[in-house]
Design a protein around this nucleic acid. Structure first.
Lengths: 215, 215
DNA sequence: AACATCGGATACATCAATGTATTGAACGTG
DNA sequence: CACGTTCAATACATTGATGTATCCGATGTT
């Protein structure tokens, strides 16, 4: 009924239903896309009828957004714990960069469903002003957190930026996005991490330097 | 009726109808997406009824592919003529790279519709085996042509690769893709060419060197 | 100019999905 | 344990889109 209404308290049953709907939706959206998915199919897979859906969400659009928030939080958690827990015995000099990079790559999800759904959300937001606002919030939150993590890691690794951190993060983000797409489109030609290992070391070295080094 | 049938000869009228349908479809797919678009809306905008559609295509999927082929050919034409007509008075040394880069950036389309439709096709292909095959062909054709253009330009500019050309092209492609997405999602934060000018010079210098230079 | 073919318009039958209104069961609270 | 509330199931009315079968005007050929 209302998702923006009273701060309805969530019973156990409700939480469980929502969880299962979100999980099912990730699958269905990945397979069929936003407009290609039907409310009924999501409910079927979650083991409910449409009644459950209408009791928890108003539209498929709203569900897509919820799925995205949910998953994106999971990614941030993993990234955070990977970067904040870099081992103490990192190698010295330049190799430290590559070591840190490996840590990050290891923790980034290679989930095809997520790629599909994220892309779907991007498209949806690009077309729909209301969705755009919500997606923008999500994106900002992610970018802010990501930037601060990268900043922290660059320092941790004994380097400093030679450009605004936001710029570097944008470039990294762009590259990760594009690489992800190629990987999923041509899995054989582009094994996971391939493009990232090619480009990121060069970029990181171009946009940061050992701390205290002369310009 | 048949798109794979007899090589039906195209009358003037037919060609015109097809053109207008393709143009209308670019708009409609951009606004609504593949599954969100209706055959009727495409026809309305093109100034026809659904009869015209069914006489030229079998499904919306087929139309999407046709639109993509059409537009992608246009891009290749522009790229080709830009790169093959680099001026004779290019600057010397390292700046030649930047000069060439500017030429390319100037000619790449910044068409929001195209970004939307291309992304839509990617998603569609990722989900649909039959579409995947067709999209794959398109992609290959583009990549091959693009690679040979870049290779030509790198030589033309007095440099040589320090990695397989395909790798560099993939990295460039990934970056262009990701940058395009950011640009369209946050037009204010990411003006056209911003990320490209940040990252590409660094990447080009990392993966090519002046011809004949020592390793 | 007459004719055969082609291409697009129209009418129709069908279907899948939606949102709402209502019901009955599960839940957890006192 | 009983009661009131919450939640999901069900039934129903409605809609928008699809594909086909048919028709008629446009096109270009001899």
């Amino acid at each position: 009924m209302d998702t923006a209404g009273r701060p309805r308290r969530v019973t156990r049953r409700r939480a469980e239903t929502r969880r299962r709907l979100l999980d099912a939706a990730l699958d269905v959206f990945a397979e069929r896309g936003l407009r290609g998915a039907s409310i009924e199919e999501v409910c079927d897979r979650a083991g409910y009828t449409r009644g459950a859906f209408y009791s928890n969400f108003r539209t498929l659009d709203e569900l897509l957004l919820a799925v995205s928030e949910d998953y994106s939080d999971q990614i941030l958690d993993r990234l955070r714990s990977a970067l904040l827990n870099l081992p103490d015995d990192l190698p010295d000099g330049e190799e430290v960069l590559d070591a840190a990079l490996e840590m990050v790559l290891a923790v980034l999800p290679d989930d095809r469903r997520w790629w599909l759904v994220e892309t779907e959300l991007v498209l949806h937001a690009a077309r729909n002003p209301e969705a755009a606002e919500a997606a923008e919030r999500l994106r900002r939150r992610f970018a802010a957190e990501f930037t601060s993590l990268v900043t922290w890691a660059i320092r941790r690794v004994g380097r400093e930026f030679t450009c605004p951190p936001e710029d570097l993060v944008r470039v990294i983000h762009a590259l990760l996005d594009g690489a992800q797409a190629q990987r999923h489109l041509e899995p054989d030609a582009v094994p996971p991490g391939r493009l990232e290992r090619l480009a990121l070391p060069a970029l990181l070295r171009a946009f940061s330097r050992p701390a205290g080094a002369p310009h």
